[in-house]
Amino acid sequence: MGNRPAELRRAITSVFEQEGADVEVVVVGNGADLPELPEGVTTVRLPENVGIPEGRNHGVRATKGDVVLFLDDDGWYRSTDLARHVRERFAAAPELGALSFRIADPDGGPDQRRHVPRLRVGDSRKSSVVTTFLGGACAIRRTAFEEGGGLPGEFFYAHEETDLAWRIMDAGYTIEYDAEAVMYHPAVAPTR
């Protein structure tokens, strides 16, 4: 967003602290100037805001990894073994196209049910097969992302994840909500 430099640094730090997996960090300035960032961060500066999905597409093009994790600038990873967990999940299941993470309140409040991408949410700490994922809290196998055609840039904001999810499933991949893969995000009222 360009107006949360402290939160962006926290997000980047949580990625660099990952253990047991190689990581690369790409930050997209989607019509926003980027603050000074730590060494090792690749930056992509877009002159105008092209929308969330197209901004993420630019970020994916700047990466090399087999699995891409998306993290919004106001979120961060709770544990240092998330990347290892994700790597192992994808290695164990070649048909797995995407993982949607559980979003937890860093202040200990309840998980927000609206962030669990399934009907009849029930227990947010229960993993399951799903038909969509959360764009700012997920991991996608690069081949699934590419076979699905990437995120629909023309959507600008909202529903881009579901569109790509269905194309990923059409390509023969599965999508799972993984309650053990946790991202912290401050609780936000859904009416914002």
Rank of each mutant, 00 (worst) to 15 (best):
G51H: 06
R56S: 03
N57I: 07
V60K: 03
T63F: 13
G65I: 02
L69A: 09
L69Q: 08
F70A: 02
L71A: 04
D72T: 07
D74F: 12
W76H: 10
R78E: 15
D81N: 13
L82V: 15
F90E: 01
F90V: 05
A92T: 05
S100Y: 07
I103H: 02
D105T: 08
D105V: 04
D107M: 14
P110K: 13
H115W: 15
V116R: 01
P117K: 05
P117C: 07
V121M: 06
S124R: 05
S127Q: 06
S127C: 10
S128C: 12
V129I: 12
V129A: 14
V130Q: 01
T131A: 14
G135C: 03
G136K: 04
G136P: 08
G136Q: 05
A137M: 10
C138H: 03
C138V: 01
A139M: 12
G149K: 03
G150L: 08
G150R: 00
P152L: 11
E154F: 15
E154H: 15
F155T: 00
F156R: 12
F156V: 14
Y157L: 11
A158I: 06
A158N: 12
E161I: 02
T162D: 10
T162K: 07
R167I: 06
I168S: 07
I168Y: 05
D170W: 03
Y173Q: 03
Y173P: 03
Y173L: 10
